[in-house]
Computed example of a mutant assay.
Amino acid sequence: MTNQTLEVESMNEQSESKFFALFFRFRELGLVAFIIILCVVIQSRNSSFLSVENINDMVKNTAIMSILAVGMMLVLITRGIDLSIGAIIGLSGMICAQVVSSYSSNPILVILLGIVIGVICGLTNGFLISKIGILPIIATLALMNIFRGVTYKISNGEWVSSYQMSEGFLKIATGNILGINNLIVIAIIIYVVFYYIVNHTIIGRQVYAVGSNPDSAAVSGINQNKVLLFVYGTMGGLAGLSGVLWVSKFASAQGDTASGYELTVIAACILGGVSIAGGAGKVSGVFLGALLLGILQNALPLLNVSPFWQTGIQGAIILFAVILNTLVKRKVDRNNLLRRKI
């Protein structure tokens, strides 16, 4: 083999390496393109899909999932997982609904109460994981059942319905600010805040460091226990907030509220490019992942797809996203390793 041939092959490998590296770094652009194509196809099949009313409903229905996905992103980046968020939503929603039905409290105070309940639950998760050393999946699975059991206990298996809630509480989710639904406004604020935290603060960089290489993070002096408490406390706080928003939106608090919803949130993160192996994920990607999942949940019924197929189609798309992300990351890592050897 001639030197010229070797040089050509080397240039081809470098070009391929750069392509995969750019794709992995800016995969959000591919996700945007996919969302646009999907919307065009759906609109061609049902002209009401891109109507103002349907878009507004779709974004509103995606807002709570988007809020939770930001917190789950932080958890997944640290190589963790939180299976208890559905139960935290149910617990905080039930307690806040009971407070409103008994005392008709100020909506702002109710929101703060929900966040405090969630933070306490999240810090409990963080303590078991960081201090005791229990695996995240075990700790959060156990607490999921505990939180759900507490919810059933304090409610005695009964619901809190809309007629027991104050009008001010119901307007938390149904009201508008400058013509924009409150749920959307709250989600936008949270995304702006967490975009800043993740990209421009020390704790944000420490979260990525712990997820990328825990041993190196420990050697560099990063307090991993503090980071994990922050991550799970934040996830809990967002779940507590979502509990209030959920009950206000659906005007009902039940013992099984948001049961299994944590899996939907994790799916949104994975679609958005968050690595379950830790160390990788962007706020913009999570937003797009939640949006894509919201589009699918809204569009499939409009296209008269059988309910039996809807979950399967969503699962297939999620699986495709995971496989694509894994293959590209593997290619990038292999090329980086070869470059270091050279």
Rank of each mutant, 00 (worst) to 15 (best):
L76N: 04
I77Q: 00
I77D: 07
I77T: 04
T78K: 09
T78R: 08
R79Q: 15
I81Q: 05
I81Y: 08
I81E: 01
I81F: 01
S84L: 06
S84F: 00
A87T: 10
I88D: 04
I89H: 05
G90I: 03
L91E: 07
L91D: 04
L91Q: 00
S92A: 15
C96D: 02
C96A: 10
A97L: 03
A97Q: 07
V99N: 13
V99S: 04
S101T: 07
S101Y: 08
S101M: 12
S101H: 00
S102K: 09
Y103R: 07
S104H: 12
S104C: 11
S105G: 10
S105M: 14
N106C: 08
N106I: 13
N106L: 04
P107E: 02
L109A: 05
L109I: 15
L109S: 12
V110C: 11
I111N: 03
L112D: 00
L113E: 13
V116M: 09
V116L: 09
V116Y: 04
I117L: 05
I117G: 00
G118E: 00
G118P: 05
G118V: 11
C121S: 10
G122T: 06
L123W: 14
L123I: 15
L123P: 12
L123M: 10
T124Y: 03
G126P: 11
F127Q: 04
F127D: 14
L128T: 13
I129H: 06
S130C: 14
S130E: 12
K131H: 07
K131E: 11
G133I: 07
G133M: 09
I134C: 09
I134R: 01
L135V: 15
P136I: 01
P136C: 04
I137Y: 14
I137C: 10
I138N: 08
T140N: 01
L141A: 10
L141P: 10
A142H: 00
L143E: 02
M144F: 04
N145E: 11
N145F: 12
I146T: 05
I146F: 15
F147M: 13
F147P: 02
F147T: 13
F147V: 11
G149H: 14
V150N: 01
V150H: 00
V150I: 13
T151D: 09
K153A: 09
I154E: 08
S155P: 09
N156D: 08
N156R: 13
G157H: 09
G157Y: 15
G157F: 01
E158R: 10
W159M: 11
V160K: 02
V160P: 00
S162N: 12
Y163I: 07
Q164T: 03
M165Q: 07
M165K: 02
S166F: 06
S166G: 11
E167V: 08
E167L: 03
G168W: 01
K171A: 13
I172T: 14
I172G: 06
I172F: 13
T174Q: 11
T174A: 12
G175W: 05
I177H: 02
I177E: 04
